[in-house]
């Protein structure tokens, strides 16, 4: 699992998504960002919008109302939905 990101999206009711992906684009409060493997550790505030997870050329969209995200130094991305 060298060059993938472990993406985990959780809401209070369920785990929405939990898998390895190539890149993730997220809507933060200050604009859209894309997280690639080996991203620096980051904590940010998400705005309403769409999270797009890309894996093997395919895109998976998730509509969100906002939340928080954390990228750790070992390429794990956790999204807490509101």
């Amino acid at each position: 699992m060298a060059d993938t990101i472990e993406l985990k999206i959780v809401s209070l009711k369920e785990v929405v998504y939990d898998d390895y992906v190539d890149s993730v684009t997220l809507p933060t409060k200050v604009g859209e960002i894309t997280v690639l493997p080996h991203h620096a550790p980051l904590i940010s505030h998400l705005a309403k919008g769409t999270i797009r997870a890309k894996s093997a050329g395919q895109q998976k969209p998730f509509e969100i109302d906002g939340g928080f995200m954390e990228v750790t130094s070992d390429s794990r991305l956790t999204v807490l939905l509101q």
Partner: peptide, 23 residues
Amino acid sequence: TNKAREYLFEPSSKEIFDAMLPA
């Protein structure tokens, strides 16, 4: 994990703290 590296806070640590900690 997570011991070694420092976190970036976006937009800023203060804003993140204010929004995130209560939540």
